[in-house]
Amino acid sequence: MEFLIDRLPLYLSGAGTTLLITLLGAVLAFALAMVVGVMGTLRNPVARAIATGYTETFRGVAALVLMYWMAFAIPQLVPYKIDALFAAVLALGLNVGAYGAEVVRAAINAVPKAQVEATIALSMSWWRRMRAVVLPQAWAQMLPTFGNLVIELMKATAIVSLIGVSDLTRVAQEQRASTGETVAAFTGALIAYFLIAQLLIVGMRLLERRANRRLGRPVATGFLALLRPPPATATGGGRR
């Protein structure tokens, strides 16, 4: 305990880095998921082919491999060295974005056809239909799986320690190396990861509540309901 209290600032800064990479990766993944997911629902075969190509490729390769490729293989091709943190965010964002795109595509396709027909009867443009009717309804369905993906992304950020970024994992490993206190050093990191995960879970649950309320659906209230275990979906939480 004392070990950790003494090193609290170190662990906090590691946690800050972990959180930063998580947020940057999530923003990139979200943007990619939205754009590619919508492309996957279009009739245009070129758009669909691009969407499929992206999702299959980046779901197929682990973020770790992608990150190493960007950090070490690319400098061999072009005279640039990609910053380690940037490579990590890019690899994680591309990888999680591919899972997210599938979630977005499926959620859009799950919006009842009758809703689209109502937008036609009101002469809404494609853009307006997406923006005002389809995406807001699909949103509520995406959120639970997005929540799982954000947790997976957060955990996956640990790989940045392998290319020298001082995240939580790196801090733990350095502390272990310099003090030999394996249990204390790693327990500190694990607890910090767990707390970050809980923070993200609560945040996502709040978003879910808001989305459901907007659809006029009943929502559970109270703080404890925010911490209940994630709904176990038979789809493996969107993870493949």
């Binding site: 320690s161 490993q173 790693f186 694990l190 767990f194 995960a197």
Partner: peptide
């Protein structure tokens, strides 16, 4: 809720 990588390194060290 915690990274596989950390679990691996932790158990490996112990």
């Amino acid at each position: 809720c915690t990274p596989l990588l950390v679990q691996l390194v932790f158990v490996f060290s112990l």
